[in-house]
Write a protein that binds this DNA or RNA. Structure first.
Lengths: 261, 261
DNA sequence: CTTGCCCACTCGTCTATACGAGTATGCCTG
DNA sequence: CAGGCATACTCGTATAGACGAGTGGGCAAG
């Protein structure tokens, strides 16, 4: 094994910078320089304690900084590893164009198959419920809505959790209220029902996940979520659906094409 | 002062959940329920040590979880506070439409003034430099570029750091290479130079900030950044500008309008 | 009354120690 | 040879204590 000093250097006792930050800095730099590669194991806490001559809590503090940055993750009993960058899913802004709505399978499945990954959808739940204040406002003051919840997985990893909300007067009793909305998804059904789609509005935020989001998306620490709220409007200007999506930020790149007008 | 028990409850010694997580859970819930309001001070470490009968490090561990979630922030010598949600800036997808390009001031200034906040732009730097691999690819294999860097502040708080890259054959010697690109910004100049803009492509990612981004954006811990890369294409299909923007995620909501086509 | 200092309280950093629990490996037993 | 167990190594949790440094209020001196 290569000796640590050759990889990691010494501390600067004259520096104002806290020792645990200096250690974190050195590890970060070593990772950035590729001295530790993706998925590779970092020196164990004990080794770093030895190398730097500090206490274990100090080393753990350093690791906790890097974890917060999403650079590394710890595995109990194994070690601390450089977090591999997962393959990302690109979401193009034309993904809801009518021409993509012909096939029988959902856009998610088709797209993932094409990319060679194994897609899955689970946690399906379709039910009527009271609209939250926000959803109600977006849908134009409806009291109750049909909520369609589902979780998307790629190669076994949860990447996205989405809920669609539709006004009851539109969705109740239609195939939209069924677990499987049929070919082309709910947008195809909406159009068949006479609600011709005119445009979508998407709002994008990024933030740290709530504990429940950490759980459902099995997020590593230091991974933010992208929160996307899409509202679909029909040609009469009515909001016919709101889709609230929380995505693991390390699994997505969103891509939009805008006219220069 | 209200006694802590009335706000915070007890630990469950039979629970599998680690003590510091239980404490974090209770504090989080109290914050969510509004028992501690935005900007309000949480009980001090000493008080929580007393209340729960645990050691100080355990309490600090709890705080560090909440900091990682961006829920609270600590101020040396003062206490730990519920992090106030700053006002957000909405970026609409039509913000580069030609009709917004008439006025003398930059879009950022106009928009912030309208919102009643005090906008500022600093750290201006305009220079020629070697294009990175990524920028070169996006601009169509150019070696050197003109880079325009600037930082945007709202009411004294840095919210965004952006760099525009333009091919030298377009920008060199023009007003684009001046610190002040004139009314309507560089897009107006590009069109005057005969590069009529056709469309933009925007790529959006979210991630935790690098240490240098923490510094330039003065980010609190637990605040991700939104990384937006916009490429501007002219009517001949040539990429004429790439703008790389890093935004404090808690200060922005991006909004896009998409045709249903 | 004002100024300035001191002190109490806050979080920041660091040490040393202890035990628990998950993982992997190799040896020993059947 | 196969299975299982012991063991060493990993990180997770928690305690107790020490000192440093930023903040703010009160008190004392001018």
């Amino acid at each position: 094994m290569t000796s640590l000093p050759s990889l990691l250097g010494d501390l600067d006792p004259t520096s104002d910078r806290a020792v645990f930050r200096q250690i974190a800095d050195q590890l970060r730099e070593a990772i950035d320089r590729g001295r530790f590669k993706e998925g590779e194991k970092l020196p164990s806490e004990a080794e770093l304690v030895e190398h730097y001559g500090v206490s274990r809590m100090t080393v753990r503090n350093s690791f906790s900084i890097l974890q917060g940055e999403g650079l590394v993750h710890a595995e109990h009993g194994k070690g601390v590893f450089v977090r591999p960058r997962p393959p990302v899913r690109r979401l193009a802004s034309d993904r809801f164009a009518r021409r993509h709505r012909e096939q029988g399978k959902s856009a998610f499945i088709v797209e993932a198959d094409a990319a060679g990954s194994h897609p899955q959808v689970d946690s399906l739940e379709v039910k009527e419920e009271k609209a939250s204040q926000d959803i109600s406002t977006r849908l134009g003051s409806v009291r109750r809505v049909l909520a369609r919840r589902r979780r998307y997985l790629l190669d076994g990893r949860p990447v996205e959790f989405a809920t669609s909300y539709l006004p009851l007067d539109i969705a109740r009793g239609t195939q939209i209220a069924e677990p499987n909305p049929g070919p082309g998804g709910i947008y195809a059904r909406l159009e068949e029902l006479g609600h011709h789609l005119d445009h979508f509005e998407e709002e994008i935020r990024a933030r740290m996940p709530s504990p429940s989001e950490v759980k459902t998306l099995r997020l590593a620490s230091g991974v933010p979520v992208i929160h996307l709220i899409r509202t679909a409007y029909d040609t009469e200007g009515r909001a016919v659906e709101v889709c609230d999506t929380v995505m693991a930020a390390d699994a997505y790149v969103l891509s939009y094409q805008l006219p220069a007008t």
